[in-house]
Design a protein around this nucleic acid. Structure first.
Length: 754
DNA sequence: TTAGGGTTAG
């Protein structure tokens, strides 16, 4: 170990400076300024200062620099600045580096090769791409290291296009040779951009220059090929490595995973464990996409216990990755346990848990954890707000959504594409289609998800033509549609009763866009035809499908049979459904409704009995209304609300007025085999009617009433709401399980089509 | 040189 006194004794003109430097390089980690021994050296020269500034390369370097300027007559040179600025890059505060840069500029070293390179690197580490770019462009002399710093820094800042452009400039600059670092730096950018051809050119260059077989180059190439879907090429390269290290294993594992070859991925992972290799967080993270609901649960448990045994569970990236894995497996309790046990909770850990909840539909849990996060003084970041917006959208929590929007504005998160897309989706799903459109129109750089969110928003509100118009705009904008785009379009057609347009979209998807329909697309077509009453055509469509029809298609047909009261076809569909998906209670309910409507109570009862026997519970319907920021939830026949008696009185009065205006209770599809009068009573206290009645009490006359319902709105409530909107002169917006209904002046925006 | 918590359909 080299102590400060040792340095002092070594510092004599007789010793060779190179030898001294050599010793220092070997043992800088052992160096700590003890007292001010060094500073007591008589007349230290600039060389010694520079060597020590470089040697420490941390906050001590900055103290030395300050001492040099304040307590000596020495003048810093380009080396001093280069080393000091490089040290400033390791600090958490950017102010020091900016100040040093200013000093260097004043002293005329701002664009020096070494200083410039250090400055570029510094700015890129602090996410100031523009400043780095400015300095780099002004430098008259640049070497391989400065080009490499620029390229790797741009990649770190996710400026992949720029990184590739800079490589192009570097190649044009004839005097500069690229090295293996250059190649390794640019490969991730090419992988991210899926620039396979350019990547192959870079590979050729690496071959020509003789560093193709370097481990870090090969690893970069494996990742490039995997991300471009060329898994075979990646496999070949992996085979070329004699003794792969952990990093190349990780690249190959995640390559298999992202190409859907889960089995290979898991096999390689097991091989890695078999070699007794340590696994790191990247390995686990790279495996995440392998985990689907109920797959590899055993493997997860093994990985988990491995992480515990080897101690890497204490790394927050590992426990965060495992939290994500458990929530992907729908094992949300295990995820929560891990989250609670993790000692160091980074923003990513919070986000993994919050998004785990939203992705499993546990929106209330997501929101309450979000509140806990704020109590813990962890500041929500881009990812947090995106997840919370998704929870708001699912829940219809407009007031929280608006509050989050305010937070986003205050933190300047609006320009992020995930955030703005989630905002559009939130507004659309909470009934604010106008607000959604305003944000959408203002957005620059929309991706396919953004377009999909807006298209499906239109669909949700029954604006089928607008959805189709937006799709044609999308086609002109150069963003390629995906499966979800077509699904959203088809749903938009379905909700708006646009049969011809739906069929055209389906055909265009296959023939113009060469998109192979998935089961969901077929099901959606069945839904379009079936809802429109073309039941035979729907059946024919199912029978002529090139793939075996599944529960989705038959389910859509059964739904249509119930709407159009076709018992015969319903029996055909349900027989298939009970085989294909015996656990699903929804089909039983649909069938029972159909039998009830036909007054065939014996059959209806037998279906219900079947449901009971198998312990398949029907989801109870409930409706939610927000008054101010307080949500009020009602279930059918609910009397638990403090204002229950007032609510029931208003409802009674409304029903009297409705009947005067010609309203007749629709009891056809009610489940129960009871007397007409009694059925009417049950139906009149459906949750949404109670919520609307409360809305009328709790808001000023003329205020729009917004209701959220977990199930599809029933025919009777739909008709009733139309009457109520006219009688009370209110706009009533109801979001049910599949769409929005805007009631006004006795009419609904869905055109009675839902 | 590997990986990373996030948005769209139902």
């Amino acid at each position: 170990m080299l102590t400060t006194s040792a340095i002092t004794s070594m510092y004599s003109p007789t010793r060779s400076r190179n030898f001294f430097l050599h010793l220092l390089r070997k043992s800088t980690t052992a160096l700590r300024p003890q007292g001010h021994l060094f500073l007591s050296i008589p007349n230290p020269d600039l060389f010694l200062f520079n060597v020590l500034i470089k040697g420490f390369s941390n906050a001590h370097s900055i103290s030395l620099y300050t001492h040099l300027r304040k307590c000596t007559l020495l003048k810093p040179d380009n080396f001093t600045y280069a080393f000091a600025i490089a040290s400033a890059s390791t600090l958490s505060d950017e102010k020091v580096g900016i100040l040093l840069h200013q000093h260097a500029v004043v002293d005329g070293y701002g664009l020096d090769l070494f200083v410039g390179t250090a400055v570029v690197d510094f700015y890129l580490k602090f996410w100031r791409v523009d400043m780095a770019r400015k300095v780099f462009d002004k430098m008259s002399v640049r070497d391989t290291v400065s080009w490499n710093s620029m390229i790797s820094g741009l990649v770190r800042n996710c400026c992949f296009d720029d990184a590739v452009w800079v490589l192009g400039d570097m190649l044009k600059d004839g005097g500069i040779r690229l090295d293996s670092t250059t190649v390794a730096a640019v490969l991730p950018a090419l992988a991210e951009l899926q620039e396979l051809i350019l990547g192959m050119e870079v590979q050729c260059l690496a071959l020509k220059l003789g560093f193709h077989s370097y481990l870090h180059v090969l690893t970069g190439l494996i990742s490039l090929y995997s991300k471009c879907g060329e898994i075979e090429a990646a496999k070949l390269l992996f085979g070329e490595i004699g003794r792969p290290d952990l990093v190349s294993y990780n690249a190959m594992i995640s390559g298999y995973t992202s190409n859907g070859e889960s089995e290979c991925s898991v096999k390689l992972f097991r091989q890695l464990l078999g070699y007794g290799e340590r696994v790191n967080s990247s390995t686990i993270v790279g495996l995440i996409p392998v985990f689907h609901p109920f797959r590899y649960l055993n493997l997860t448990t093994c990985i988990h216990s491995f992480c515990v045994k080897s101690g890497i569970i204490s790394q927050s990236s590992v426990s965060t990755a495992l939290t994500t894995v458990y929530s992907r497996l729908n094992k949300i309790n295990s995820a929560r346990l891990l989250f609670d046990e993790s000692s160091e909770k980074t923003p990513a850990s919070w986000n993994a848990m919050i998004s785990g909840y939203t992705q499993n539909g546990l929106t209330e849990a997501a929101i309450s954890l979000f509140q806990e996060m704020q109590i813990s003084k962890v500041s929500p970041n881009l990812v947090t707000v995106t997840s919370i917006l998704s929870a708001c959208a699912q829940l219809g929590a407009l007031s929280l959504g608006k509050w989050v929007h305010g937070l986003i504005k205050s933190k300047n998160f609006e320009s992020n594409i995930y955030v703005s897309t989630a905002l559009i989706d939130m507004y659309a799903k909470c009934g604010g289609i106008r607000e959604a459109l305003e944000l959408f129109d203002l957005m620059v750089g929309k991706n396919v998800v953004t377009w999909n969110a807006m298209i499906s928003g239109y669909g949700l509100h029954g604006q089928g033509q607008d959805a189709l118009r937006l799709f044609s705009e999308m086609s002109h904008s150069g963003v390629a549609p995906n499966g979800i785009t077509f699904l959203s379009l088809l749903y938009a057609c379905s909700h708006a009763g646009l049969v011809k347009e739906g069929e055209e979209t389906f055909q265009s998807m296959i023939h113009d866009y060469h998109f192979e329909p998935l089961p969901e697309h077929y099901a959606c077509m069945v839904d379009i035809l079936g809802r429109a009453g073309q039941l035979e055509k729907a059946l024919k469509f199912i029978k002529e499908m090139p793939v075996e029809p599944g529960a989705a298609e038959w389910g859509a047909l059964l739904g249509a049979c119930v709407i159009h009261k076709d018992k015969k076809l319903a029996q055909v569909a349900s027989e298939r459904l009970f085989e294909l998906d015996p656990e699903n209670v929804g089909y039983h309910v649909l069938l029972s409704n159909l039998y009830s409507a036909e007054r065939n109570y014996r059959l209806a009862a037998s279906v219900r009995h079947d449901v009971k026997r198998r312990n398949l519970a029907k989801i109870p319907g409930c409706a939610l209304i927000e008054i101010g920021e307080t949500p009020h939830v009602f279930t059918s026949g609910d009397r638990s609300h403090p204002q229950a008696s007032a609510i029931y009185a208003v409802l009674e009065e409304l029903i009297r007025k409705m009947k005067e205006a010609g309203f007749q209770t629709e009891t056809d599809t009610a489940l129960h085999d009871v007397e007409e009068e009694e059925k009417e009573l049950m139906i009149n206290v459906h949750s949404e009617k109670l919520a609307i009645a409360f809305g009328i009490i709790a808001t000023e006359p003329g205020t729009e009433i917004r209701i959220f319902k977990n199930l599809r709105v029933c025919v009777d409530c739909h008709t009733a709401t139309k009457f109520i909107s006219k009688i009370t002169e209110r706009v009533i917006v109801v979001r049910d399980a599949t769409r929005f209904h805007h009631f006004k002046d006795g009419l609904c925006s869905c055109g009675d089509y839902w």
